[in-house]
């Protein structure tokens, strides 16, 4: 129990961060018109692609003769990039269609 409290104490900053970010996410998303649900989901999908940063860090730290880590890490970088790039491009394609059309007189 004491160790758990210690752990929480050491990571207090992170925990604050966590709670505030959760609330922010809820706040940002409320009042979204249904029309934007799909692009929003897609955009959010691209944003969690930030996990690729973790994959890059893993690769940077792996020693060049650790082939297991290298191949898994490489796969992680490719997949993470797919998530980021594919996600943003798909979202942009969807939103491209939402351009304001010149109104008919």
């Amino acid at each position: 129990m004491e160790q758990l409290l210690n752990y929480i104490g050491q990571n207090m900053e992170m925990i604050y961060f966590l709670i505030l970010a959760i609330l922010l996410g809820v706040e940002v998303i409320s009042n979204v018109p249904a029309i934007l649900h799909t692009p929003l989901m897609s955009g959010a999908n691209a944003i969690h692609g930030v996990v690729v940063v973790g994959a890059i860090i893993v690769m940077l730290q792996a020693s060049p003769d650790n082939y297991a880590a290298l191949s898994i890490g490489f796969l992680a970088v490719v997949m993470g990039t797919l998530n980021v790039v594919g996600g943003f491009v798909v979202t942009d394609r969807m939103l491209e269609m939402f351009k304001k059309k010149p109104k008919k007189q």
Binding site: M14, F17, L18, A21, I22, L23, L24, G25, V26, V28, I29, L40, M41, A44, N45, I47, H48, G49, V50, V51, V53, G54
Partner: peptide
């Protein structure tokens, strides 16, 4: 960056 991006999507999703 990973924390914000991840949590935002987690809660918004």
């Amino acid at each position: 960056a990973m924390l914000t991006g991840g949590i935002l999507v987690g809660s918004a999703g």
